[in-house]
Amino acid sequence: MLAPYLRLRNYRSAWLRGGFTAEDLALGGSNRLIDALFAWGSPDRIAARLTEHRQAGADHVAVQVVTDAPGTFARQAWRDLAPELVTA
């Protein structure tokens, strides 16, 4: 999911200005980069991360379910996540 963005100069530049290093952007992205860019884990953990964004001042947060099966609609993952998003 992240690979195409790692090749784009504007994204790379923004991440480098934001404190990431060239090593963070290499080989598919470091754990530090992934953890900063993605809310992952259980639905309640994801909801807590989205709440952090809103408390930090975000007035909207885009949510996209990413799975290990690219190109498929993650219906069950959305169903699991939906109740948490209502309260996030």
Rank of each mutant, 00 (worst) to 15 (best):
L2F: 02
A3R: 12
P4E: 05
P4C: 02
Y5C: 05
Y5D: 06
Y5R: 10
R7P: 04
R7A: 12
L8D: 12
L8C: 04
L8H: 11
R9W: 11
R9Q: 07
N10W: 10
R12W: 02
R12C: 00
R12F: 01
A14T: 05
A14E: 02
W15Y: 03
W15G: 02
L16T: 00
R17V: 01
R17F: 03
R17E: 09
G18N: 00
G18L: 03
E23H: 06
L25G: 01
L27M: 09
L27C: 11
S30P: 04
S30K: 01
R32Y: 11
R32E: 03
D35F: 00
A36F: 09
A36Y: 08
L37R: 08
L37C: 04
A39V: 03
W40S: 15
W40M: 06
G41E: 06
R45N: 09
I46M: 07
I46S: 06
L50K: 09
L50P: 05
H53Q: 13
Q55A: 12
Q55P: 06
G57T: 09
D59Q: 13
D59V: 13
H60C: 12
H60P: 06
V61C: 13
V61D: 12
A62K: 15
A62D: 15
V63H: 14
Q64P: 09
V65E: 13
D68W: 10
P70I: 07
P70T: 10
G71S: 10
A74W: 01
R75V: 15
Q76A: 15
Q76M: 11
Q76T: 12
Q76F: 02
A77Y: 03
A77L: 08
R79M: 11
R79F: 03
R79H: 09
L81P: 07
L81F: 04
L81G: 06
L81N: 07
A82P: 03
P83G: 07
E84C: 13
E84S: 15
E84H: 15
L85M: 11
V86A: 14
A88Q: 10
